[in-house]
Design a protein around this nucleic acid. Sequence first.
DNA 1: TCAAAAGTGTTTAGTCTACACCCATGA
DNA 2: TCATGGGTGTAGACTAAACACTTTTGA
Lengths: 246, 246
Amino acid sequence: MRERLHPEEIQADGAGFLPSLAIDTVIFGFHEGQLKILLLEYKNTNWLALPGGFVRETENLNDAARRVLAERTSLQGIYLEQFYTFGDLDRYDPTPLRAIMSAHGLNYSDHHWLLRRFVSVGYYALVDFTKAVPVPDLLADRCDWYDLANLPPLMQDHQKIVQKALDTLRIELDRKLIGFNLLSETFTMADLQRLYETILGQKLHRSGFQRKMLSLEILERLDKQYSGGAHKAPYLYRFAFDKKPE
Amino acid sequence: MRERLHPEEIQADGAGFLPSLAIDTVIFGFHEGQLKILLLEYKNTNWLALPGGFVRETENLNDAARRVLAERTSLQGIYLEQFYTFGDLDRYDPTPLRAIMSAHGLNYSDHHWLLRRFVSVGYYALVDFTKAVPVPDLLADRCDWYDLANLPPLMQDHQKIVQKALDTLRIELDRKLIGFNLLSETFTMADLQRLYETILGQKLHRSGFQRKMLSLEILERLDKQYSGGAHKAPYLYRFAFDKKPE
DNA sequence: TCAAAAGTGTTTAGTCTACACCCATGA
DNA sequence: TCATGGGTGTAGACTAAACACTTTTGA
């Protein structure tokens, strides 16, 4: 079921894939008050990059993005949104990829399809941190979460892609009620508020936030959660998909 | 200065352009209370299509869109925004293009690059209707404005592209103050309101609209316009770019 | 002086902010 | 019973909607 980039695909002339077109995904997670994204670390280099992939000739663009997402997180049915297509010429810098390929003991000609210019369609995904199982791709030896607030340098223009994804996420946050996709199925109002504050980068008023969220009428109140803390137990909530479809 | 698709480019194997990648532009204009878009009519067929083009190998994606826009409207420095990239498999229907090429007396093999699958990056542009000079491309014999409210059937998925462009325009309308790009340099408050009402598809309250626009502090009030009507003359306004940059 | 359109004032309703208060809970 | 976090109440500020009133213009 799981499909990966196979060696023969790397060596071939890109056959079976649409040429000059790539996909990059910014996969957001939320854990311990921190927004995180999934990054790949390439073998024998210090290059960090966004999970990406290519579009099969017989595959919808959006399906290709879903496939990339599923390959890296082992998750299906995740919130995924296309946000921008990056096509500047200065994206085209074969140096890192050549180094990565060398690290694999592969030395291709400068005309290898992976070294040519790509236009890349950017997607962002919102996943439940506790459910995702990061899986490296063939060229990488690690796939891990990194704090968005403290990102290491990224390959090519991936820093710019992350920034644009975050900008889009902030704008869409209240318009599309997408924040819930970053939490477990049940959560407290405080969890939700911490998430919103982290994404937006600003404090929100507790009582106002609660009222606003409840007024949307998309939250289902469940039993209280007895956390063991010396204070009133908070209610748990669940996002009720059916109550107000987008 | 003006660059067009030359015959040798059509006949060649797409050399010089990024393969499998296209650009489609939804060019909005506003005239006599109607939102309009520019469409191309192909020779000897009844096919109508959005102005489009391809990306040169040595050209930024956004520059390619600007080039396409300039070629069709003879305008520079126009508001242009990328809004979505369309990559479904069912976009791929070579029938219309084959018919168009036949109408030109050209009979190419099924492997001609124009007949292969394309992923298309969608842009929308907002132009001053009175300034644009529609210019057909090589394959078309007409380039004209059509009422958005009464569109004829379009080629391939162009109807869907137009709809998505309009959806985006509506969402961005107040967030980015982009409506002004559709009017002449000076306009009355009534002009502006009619434009907003047309884009949003709903009536707005006159006094509230006026106050809201003025409160943005981006409109510069000029002399009154004596229209000859038997009523109070309206002020002319100008959009003051410098007052509140985006 | 009248009708029509433009500009502004005013009343009202709704929403958001800030603070306050009470409740539940385990130490 | 105390401290702490959770839930709701409420007064004031701000914003938006609806309506009314005045002004300007040419017939």
